[in-house]
Design a protein around this nucleic acid. Structure first.
Lengths: 337, 337
DNA sequence: TTGTAAGCGTTATCAG
DNA sequence: CTGATAACGCTTACAA
């Protein structure tokens, strides 16, 4: 009954009284068709509701136009923002996003990449987890380009886009010192992703350089609940921290809520707090969080530009790591000198 | 150099010393292959890193496995949660999600649907905006199935999944009355989507039945900033509302922040607030918002189940509208009787 | 169970 | 500029 029956170029050709090639050319930018035939074809296509079959086109051109977004915890504000920006940029570049959820389990990213291969994606952008070396190689050998965002990896081939995590950490430590804080803490999640660990290391080392020891706690996933728990742990210690750098804004929000409601602390009078990501919630009045903004637009711009450009020819290893600068957004959770 | 060169079934066949059909059959569940050949094929495939080309398979089978998610404002917590849930369910059902961003502009959804047709998607799930009637018809005629979530539409063919918005509104109004509130307000966005308007109408009418007039304000998009502005408007009126039902949680969060910080109101003592969606932030300690939870899991379950099942045969018009129940999540922003 | 061959809807090549 | 024809990589009768 309602069998799938899309209209094909043959039908359009028949109705327009031209050959199939003419139809194909009409929908191929830069192909040579006379204005008259083009007109006839377009009219017929319009009438029939014809749309080029990208499955078939991809098969022929060896270029599907598909880019896979591989991501876990998509519902998280930062991830959602990034995925949204990437999707939009891809569309504007004439590509289309395929979305694959991963979880924390082993091989989850590998499975996602296999799926990308099956759909002959032109590229994959990995926002979470790390693929196995062998599958990475398989992708590259197949011509499937890879972009890794905020992941650490030493292989040649993929484009890596990272932030200046350590710099940022050292920067905010200075701000804490200027605010007169001396008991510093870092609130991290247990997930231990490269960028999170880079922030932690950067903060601890900057503290050491200043002659201060930083209290570090790691707990749970990278979310609000973890932030609450981390506050319970860190704020019970003596001496109680008077400044905390949270690995993400979500952690910072949880931390602040617990600090205020369970420890009756005033921010920033009793406690300075800084976060990372500059998610929308960081700007909400209840938090008004001083934080580092990840340049989501530039990240997606760079990613899409790279994978839209023709692949590197020859062996001239071009730049494959891009370190973008975060921006410190001053709000009210850190006292100004 | 790095030309795209995926390994094809022919190569696998050669290496395994069998025919191409044998390879195809090995990767077709339920096809008849002897254990020995299957073994040989799998070994060769493994060695070569072969993955079935879903573009070609889709072309033959007339079934791509692709489902388009059409959505605007993906970075919004509720949308992101829903997209995440849908994507995951689709994966578990052996399908894959294609993501298309839309904006508020005219024809944005239509363009997205055309893209869905081009990739020969098996179905599209529309979370935002409304498609034109003609393109809807074109989709259905082509066999591209449609699911509309929280949209209003009178056409036959698509599956519609809606919430019991009016019921919920009337329910929360009762709660406000029991809390002793008499000056009711409804804070809406200007976007005027069907579900938002249904909540508004339901609330206003329930108020009328109780002999109370409801103050209604509409402003901006469906977000936090709109909530702040709406609070500024509504809380300046006399008599000042003592209970407000916000069309979404995001609006409620903005409303609460403005009520507390700009009007120095205590919630729920001076003002009762309720929201809709039960986004993660509603559970944060700073808000602890009483709200209605949309059954995201059941929504995605229903959507995926419907589009995975064989299309309706014959003319027996099956159920095409599903109204799911929201659940009132009691937290602390509405006084309990 | 296996291989052969036809066909899915395109695009690219090559005469005209 | 146009139309035939050969791919692309797969599935699926059909015949062996």
């Amino acid at each position: 009954m309602s069998q799938k029956e899309f209209v094909s170029a043959r039908e359009v050709a028949e109705r327009a009284g031209v050959s199939r090639s003419a139809v194909s050319r009409t929908f191929t930018p830069g192909a040579s068709v006379s204005p008259e035939t083009r007109e006839k074809v377009l009219a017929a296509a319009e009438a029939l509701g014809y749309q080029v079959n990208h499955l078939a086109r991809g098969l022929m051109r060896n270029e599907s136009g598909i880019v896979c977004l591989i991501v876990s915890e998509l519902s998280t504000p930062y991830r959602a923002t990034l995925v949204s920006a990437l999707t939009e940029r891809l569309q504007n570049a004439g590509k289309i996003a395929m979305l694959i959820n991963t979880d924390r389990s082993d091989g989850s990213v590998d499975r996602a990449l296999r799926q990308a291969i099956r759909y002959r994606a032109d590229a994959s952008i990995i926002l979470s987890g790390m693929p196995d070396k062998s599958i990475t190689q398989q992708c590259l050998k197949s011509g499937l380009r890879l972009v890794l965002i905020n992941r650490d990896d030493d292989q040649q081939g993929p484009l890596r886009i990272n932030m200046n995590d350590a710099d940022a950490a050292s920067h905010i430590l200075d701000a804490f010192l200027q605010a007169g804080c001396r008991h510093l803490a870092f609130a991290n999640s247990q997930s231990g992703t490269p960028s999170l660990m880079a922030r932690e290391r950067g903060f601890v080392e900057a503290g050491r350089r200043a002659g201060l020891e930083v209290q570090v706690a790691r707990h749970g996933q990278t979310g609000y609940e973890a932030g609450k728990t981390l506050a319970q742990h860190l704020l019970s210690r003596t001496p109680r921290p008077d400044a905390v750098f949270c690995a993400t804004d979500l952690i910072a929000c949880g931390f602040m809520d617990a600090a205020r409601q369970e420890f009756s602390l005033s921010i920033p009078q009793d406690l300075c707090v800084a976060g990372f990501d500059n998610i929308e919630q960081a700007a909400w009045l209840s938090y008004d969080l001083t934080t580092f903004s990840q340049p989501v637009d530039r990240i997606s711009e760079a990613a899409v530009a790279w994978l839209s450009s023709p692949p590197e020819q020859g062996s001239g290893e071009a730049v494959t790591t891009l370190t973008l600068k975060t921006e410190l957004i001053w709000r009210s959770t850190v006292r100004r000198a």
